[in-house]
Nucleic acid binder design. Structure first.
Lengths: 108, 108
DNA sequence: TGACTGTATGCCGATACAGTAATATACTTG
DNA sequence: CAAGTATATTACTGTATCGGCATACAGTCA
């Protein structure tokens, strides 16, 4: 499939991208952005996180290309960079769903 | 798509699964297992990591269902739990590949 | 210009986690 | 049983990072 050689450097880059998704706060932010672009303040209100915290998480998500930013006067609007980001989250959710069902079946 | 409600608890579980992939050592281990099941010692040799380290990483990967284990006398064989695990890695690799291409294009 | 608002950044304390060494456990073999 | 091997666990250390606070920066409006 992938034509990339899995050198240590590449593996590091891939790990860094998974790490961006490995934080509940960032998943929450990304999930908020499903509905369309939002300002930092809107994300603060929607997520319940601190402003500085949201800003930092957005910086991380932006630095690896998971979100895009657009300045509009005093505001900065953030949006998902592409569909692929949330598709990956959905796949992981799907795995988890199967897993939980399996456990229920065993327990019940 | 997913029928799971994204409660804080669920988001935490999803994040934990991404976190398992957010470590170069674990990606390396998973990648080694692409070729089939391997013992801990084989993984130690193939990855260059310490034995205790590999054991702990395998424990993490096993606890969230990314690998399966099979005891055979003194040995423990590990294998990928299913195709989905590496598919997710491949998707992330694909994203990275596009990203690197894009940068090349801009730089070149 | 000064006051105000939205966003980003630097610093700090607490915590989490990777890696290593030593040890414990499980199993085999003599 | 004792000795040896494969794996797991524990204790420890160094590093990274999250969250909060304070503050800096950027832009608007009077």
């Amino acid at each position: 499939m992938s034509r990339l050689r899995l050198t240590p450097e590449i593996i590091e880059l891939v790990a860094a991208r998974f790490k961006a998704l490995a934080e509940p706060a960032r998943l929450e932010i990304l999930n908020c952005l499903r509905g369309g672009e939002m300002t930092v303040t809107e994300l603060v209100e929607a997520s319940g996180l601190g402003q500085a915290n949201v800003s930092k998480h957005l910086h991380i998500l932006h630095s690896i290309g998971f979100v895009r930013r657009r300045k509009d006067g005093l505001f900065v609007w953030y949006m998902l960079a592409d569909k692929g980001v949330m598709q990956m989250c959905d796949v992981m959710c799907g795995r988890l769903e199967q897993e939980l069902k399996q456990r229920e079946r065993l327990a019940g």
